[in-house]
């Protein structure tokens, strides 16, 4: 078990390094840097001025070295210009001698956002908090309803209940967030139907969450996920229901409800656990769409802003968080599966 964990962690670390390097590489390609130089030093500067700006700000060095500096494994650059020492780790107006040698993601230095004019670490933390609330409610709605649908459908395979619930879950997997969101807003928040039960934006939910402003975004994400989890639960439930011990329980006279609740359910929930954990990366996708659609300024919204405005540091920060979230959930799902299913032994 320990070697398994260790190997997984090492692979994870390697994956994270590779992925962040890819993002770093793509955001630091020369046209992007040129754009940064033009937005910082004036849009009408010549090519030579762009080159000298990049040189002065430490961009004109090999990609790998700069990646090392950004991640915090290589010492930050320093530049001595007529006695004035500037450098990556030296904030303007501080003593160069007191500045640390390394400053990167590992040391907690995430850079400065050019769009929001604030440190990236702070932005990411607050936005992530907002998205965390959204995710929590999505999970709270999605998981129980999906498990319930899957359980009811898989309980008696082929019955009318199974058929109709399965069709519902297929329909829900065919409804991506931008479709369900648009339909929900048109039905419940527009002047077309005149219902106006809920609000079409979730901007006010950033201060106080009410049923009125938060129900639609939560439902929009949940609908797309419910179908998939429900189908997995149904398959696993249907398989368990054909097992020998279920037949034995039925034959010795246990009521059907008891069989489902006490014998089948626990064993049927092992497979969906993995699926639910692996839903997190998908939720990330949904979060970006829904936060854009409902104007809820969370992590997904920030990512879109960073990417749309060529805010390199913020985009890098966001991608680090996204990659870590994906990898950690993968790890939890693997480890949790081993814990839940005693039949699996990792050698």
């Amino acid at each position: 078990m320990l070697t398994f964990l260790l190997r997984r962690l090492l692979t994870m670390l390697l994956t994270a390094l590779c992925l962040t390097f890819v993002v770093f590489f793509l955001t630091n390609l020369s046209p992007n840097l040129e754009k940064v130089a033009k937005s910082e030093a004036g849009s009408r500067i010549t090519d030579a001025e762009v080159a000298s700006w990049l040189e002065k700000n430490g961009y004109a060095r090999p990609m790998l070295v700069r990646y090392g500096e950004w991640i915090g494994l290589a010492p930050g650059w320093r530049r001595d210009e007529a006695g004035v020492i500037s450098g990556r780790c030296i904030a303007r107006g501080t003593d160069p001698a007191a500045a640390p040698r390394f400053c990167g993601v590992i040391q907690g230095y995430w850079g400065q956002s050019t769009v929001f004019k604030e440190p990236v670490a702070g932005i990411v933390a607050t936005r992530l908090g907002l998205t965390g609330i959204l995710m929590f409610w999505v999970m709270a709605v999605m998981v129980p309803s999906a498990l319930l649908i899957g359980m009811l459908a898989g309980m008696r395979e082929g019955s009318r209940l199974d058929r109709s619930l399965s069709t519902v879950s297929i329909a829900s997997t065919a409804t991506p967030e931008y479709v369900s969101g648009v339909i929900f807003i048109a039905l419940f928040a527009s002047s077309m139907t005149g219902l106006k039960w809920f609000k079409g934006t979730a901007t006010s939910a950033m201060d106080t969450i009410t049923f009125e402003n938060f129900f639609l975004p939560v439902m929009t994400i949940a609908v797309y996920g419910i179908g998939y989890i429900a189908r997995m639960t149904r398959a696993s439930m249907a398989e368990v229901m054909t097992a020998q011990y279920i037949r034995t329980a039925r034959l010795k006279g246990v009521a059907f409800g008891q069989v489902v609740m006490r014998h089948a359910l626990r064993n049927a929930l092992i497979a969906p656990f993995t699926v639910i954990m692996l839903q997190f990366p998908w939720l990330l996708n949904g979060v970006v769409i829904v936060e854009t659609l409902f104007n809820y300024k969370g992590f997904g919204w920030t990512l879109v802003q960073a990417a749309g405005n060529n805010d390199i540091q913020l985009l890098l920060g966001c991608s680090v968080v996204a990659v870590v979230v994906v990898l950690v959930t993968q790890l939890i799902s693997d480890v949790g599966y081993v814990f839940l299913n005693p039949r699996i032994r990792i050698s």
């Binding site: 793509l26 754009k35 990512l303 996204a322 990659v323």
Partner: peptide, 26 residues
């Protein structure tokens, strides 16, 4: 490993990185 690498990449981030005019220019 390569496949898992691509799979661990959030799709929207990938799109934003690949399909911008600056990257297309390169």
């Amino acid at each position: 490993f390569l496949a898992n690498l691509v799979l661990a990449f959030p799709v929207i981030l990938l799109f934003y990185l690949l399909v911008t005019p600056e990257i297309v220019e390169t």
